[in-house]
Write a protein that binds this DNA or RNA. Structure first.
Lengths: 345, 345
DNA sequence: CCGTTTATGCTCAAGTTGAGCATAGCTGAG
DNA sequence: CTCAGCTATGCTCAACTTGAGCATAAACGG
């Protein structure tokens, strides 16, 4: 049984005959995908590759590069190399997310293309716009996951589109035998319906549930049977290539969890910042509003920051003290991070 | 910069010329490794494969199998299949840990063997000894990591062997230019010397530090330069094949972290158990002693268990009520787990 | 110079946590 | 048969943490 990913069964990709002759002819390749995240103007953004001009309408994708053990000693150094080549970006913080290897995730099984196992990475950086990015653009991650944006309260898409359509999907369960967790319960836990609380870290679980219910474009594209019935209806969020939206969901969930116990938030901040700017960045990542006074008590009390002595004028009100990340905190506390909990919405 | 893994630089494997002709001829293969963990008699054990009788003295390894996308639709189903074939074990809970792909991690670069990228999994199970395991045996994980066993207080190996030898290694730093974090600080944080606290989750960081300092057998085997000087001295813990001890370290760290926010501990328990048995299992995993009364308050208060109504006699004292895991907790709390913190040692 | 706006300091009640005292109910020795 | 010894379990209390809100400070624009 699974705790993290509440599913009825392992997610199915395409390709139902277990072996196809075409696939048998192909080998295995290793790819690297990066979810490169920054925050600009209080918007969490991710670097996406727009499709070539001639391939009309192909969806956005995450940066991708093959891994060749011949050229790179480690997976991470391989990643850094081609990200730099493709985007001009020198990655700072990077961590491995997950390895995605389901059949059909990359090429259709009837293609003779090799199976691609892809190792997803999360990278955090400051969005310096002075990049010579040929194809890459920064795009808000809430573009792909509008239901994750709680900064202006509960997003309306939850009421308007997600709840009714998931209820429909729940209804469709009748025929299925008793499951460890009913669709109803899974939906309730993932999306916080019927009084359950919203857990901002369950980004992947929510996406996978929507996929399973056929409510995201990728599910229709992958031709899951469940999806045919309403394939004419508008789908939720903006789709991405292959399983890149799944990778991005994993990345968002990871960042949201991680800033609570590691000071990674400072990877996204300039060297000097006000406490409110820091709060805004945390809120951009997490979603909900935080109690301002308690946020500063928390951040200062944890020793995460120290005042630079300077102030920032023109805040619209009283000037704000500037702070910087206090690196020594890494030596003092076992798990320093912005231990915030969501406040009132 | 890295928060989780405090290192001077990326770990170096063997094979210094960046491309060898032999390696260039070989391809890439995908392997799966499993750290299968159970707790028997209050001992955390892991399933290891002893070497073939004729390959005298080869170290233990974790179960390993190749991944073929032709035969298995997902990485996890591939894992379950060959684990079952090799050990007779039907895995219950399994989660992906990390993908290990450094060059030299599996074969020496001058072999013509293909590069193996290995996806490490963590599996939790009850140790039913009724298995027809041909090669596999259960072995305490503290065998490989004696410094992680704090159940009887601070392990002596820290004072006797680790501290003096790491101090020596710190001394050797003089020549190296200023680093983001000094060896001294890294050692202090990882091992809790000089008044720093012991963080039971930093299993991997500690192993990697010892590796870097040349104090574990694998480092000598991999011929890191730093290690030559004391290659004649006894090394810490029992080594494993390839980088399997690194994978196991990752697994231990992950379990230790995970039981605090997911009820995975119950994967290791029989259906019915006393609260003290549960506590012993948690302690086997985490190390330090827990305050008994507070532990029960915590576990009962969190709604993780419910009494079965039965009692267990012959406890050596008053009979103990039997409990079972309360699955409904998964539907009630966003992140249920044994939120223990280490008590007095 | 005053209303508006943002920054920052402070308080208070409620909840959580660490530690220990006290009682309950077996078992085995004598 | 009884009591010492042992483990289980209940309960209290002080210290600390957290959620929420009141109050004051200091700029800015008119």
């Amino acid at each position: 049984m699974s705790y993290g990913q509440l599913r009825e069964s392992e997610p199915r990709s395409i390709g139902e005959p277990d072996i196809t002759a075409a696939a048998a002819a192909a080998g295995v390749e290793i790819g690297l995908n990066a979810a490169i995240v920054a925050v600009t103007d209080n918007e969490p953004v991710v670097l996406v590759i727009r499709s070539e001009p001639d391939s009309a309408g192909a969806p956005d994708g995450l940066p991708f590069g093959p891994f060749s053990p011949l050229q790179h000693r480690t997976l991470e150094s391989g990643l850094r190399a081609w990200v730099h080549r493709q985007t001009g970006l020198e990655l700072g913080y990077a961590e491995q997310l997950y390895t995605f290897g389901d059949r059909g995730r990359h090429a259709r099984p009837d293609d003779a293309a090799p199976h691609v196992v892809s190792i997803g990475y999360l990278a955090l950086t400051q969005a310096k716009s002075s990049l010579d990015m040929q194809h890459g653009v920064w795009r808000s991650w809430y573009h792909y996951f509008p239901w994750e944006d709680w900064r202006r309260g509960r997003p309306e898409i939850l009421e308007n589109a997600i709840e009714p359509r998931l209820k429909e999907w729940i209804e469709g369960q009748r025929s299925i035998p008793a499951l460890p967790v009913s669709r109803q319960e899974r939906v309730r836990i993932c999306f916080g319906f019927d009084g359950a609380s919203w857990d901002e870290e369950k980004v992947l679980e929510r996406y996978e549930l929507l996929y399973e219910a056929g409510l995201v474009d990728e599910a229709v594209r992958d031709e899951r049977e469940a999806t045919r019935q309403w394939s004419e209806r508008p789908r939720l969020g903006v789709p991405m290539r292959f399983d890149h939206r799944r990778i991005l969901a994993t990345a968002i969930g990871r960042v949201r969890a991680k800033i609570k116990y590691r000071p990674v938030i400072f990877e996204l901040m300039p060297d000097e910042f006000t406490l409110f700017e820091l709060q805004r960045t945390v809120e951009a990542i997490l979603g909900p509003h935080l109690h301002k006074q308690n946020f500063r008590r928390l951040v200062e009390g944890a020793g995460l920051v120290e005042p630079t002595g300077e102030v920032k004028m023109r805040t619209g009100g009283r000037p704000a003290k500037l702070y910087r990340f206090r690196r020594e905190v890494l030596l003092e506390r076992p798990a320093p991070g912005v231990r915030v909990k969501p406040g009132k919405v």
